[in-house]
């Protein structure tokens, strides 16, 4: 009985992976068609990118703030007090660029965008809107998934750059007004230890997280079954799978990039 259950789960997992790969290849082919349909892509860029800015702002400012505060706490007793102040900007900068902004923005996008793509496409699937598109000789992969995939791919790095700036702002405010680090010390520390590679590595992660989240949302949405309950399940599944993908991909990328 247990063997049967495990076997079924493994089979389902490989089926899902197979579906994702198939959709990924079809989407890569579809991007060629999308050069002529920038209106569809721009609409999704607004939905995925611009409309995510308020949430990314809130998450980023507090992430930066708590990183600065926690850094001081963790340096205490390990480093002399003066050095803590000297290294604070650099430590916060590296943590934000490499890890915090890409991963936290990725998780936010998984919740806000990945789940909403699955819900939107899932609703279209169960109400026969996707079938209706097909009867109008319009390929749903090109028309629905393509723009979302390209927008996820391209907007995520932009959101991470924005998140980097806001998170630094949060860290700076806490450092200056609550910890007592001067502006010159904070930014001087960042300047001394700044590495462009950290920025690039964060953006590579963002690029992969954004495309992966949109891909997972589309695949789960297209395979939704079972009415409103099915849409609910797909929404949760998209968030869980996207979040897991981001965390696993983050680990693999860390191994490759550093």
């Amino acid at each position: 009985m247990i063997n049967h259950w495990i076997g079924k789960k493994i089979l389902t997992f490989f089926m899902e992976v197979g579906r994702l790969w198939r959709l990924f290849i079809l989407l890569i082919i579809a991007t060629r068609y999308l050069f002529g349909r920038m209106d569809l892509v721009l609409k999704q860029m607004r939905v995925i990118g611009v409309n995510s800015l308020p949430l990314i702002s809130v998450v980023s400012i507090f992430t930066g703030a708590v990183t600065a505060w926690q850094a001081v706490y963790q340096f205490n007793g390990v480093m002399p007090e003066g050095m803590t102040i000297d290294f604070l900007g650099a430590a916060v900068n590296a943590a934000i660029l490499i890890e915090l902004s890409p991963v936290l923005a990725g998780i936010v996008i998984a919740g806000r965008v990945g789940a909403s793509i699955a819900a939107e496409l899932g609703t279209m699937k169960v109400t026969e809107q996707i079938d209706a598109l097909e009867t109008l000789a319009i390929d749903p992969i090109r028309y629905l998934a393509g723009p979302r995939f390209v927008a996820g791919w391209t907007m995520m790095p932009v959101l991470v750059i924005y998140s980097n700036i806001i998170a630094h702002l949060g860290a700076f405010v806490v450092s200056k007004f609550l910890i007592g680090v001067s502006s010159a010390t904070f930014f001087g520390s960042i300047q001394r230890y700044f590495s462009v590679y950290n920025v690039y590595s964060g953006l590579i992660k963002a690029f992969i997280f954004g495309g992966g989240t949109a891909l997972i949302g589309c695949s789960i949405g297209f395979n939704t079954e079972g009415g409103a309950e099915g849409v609910g399940k797909s929404t949760i599944k998209a968030f869980v799978f996207s979040s897991a993908f981001i965390l696993i991909a983050d680990y693999i990328l860390a191994m490759i990039l550093f």
């Binding site: 609703t123 279209m124 109400t127 026969e128 809107q129 079938d131 209706a132 598109l133 097909e134 009867t135 109008l136 000789a137 390929d139």
Partner: peptide, 19 residues
């Protein structure tokens, strides 16, 4: 198939309008 479908129109049971 998409080419053939250009000769078809279909009315769905629930209309399936794009909401």
């Amino acid at each position: 198939l998409f080419q053939v479908r250009l000769d078809f129109g279909m009315l769905f049971q629930g209309a399936a309008l794009f909401d």
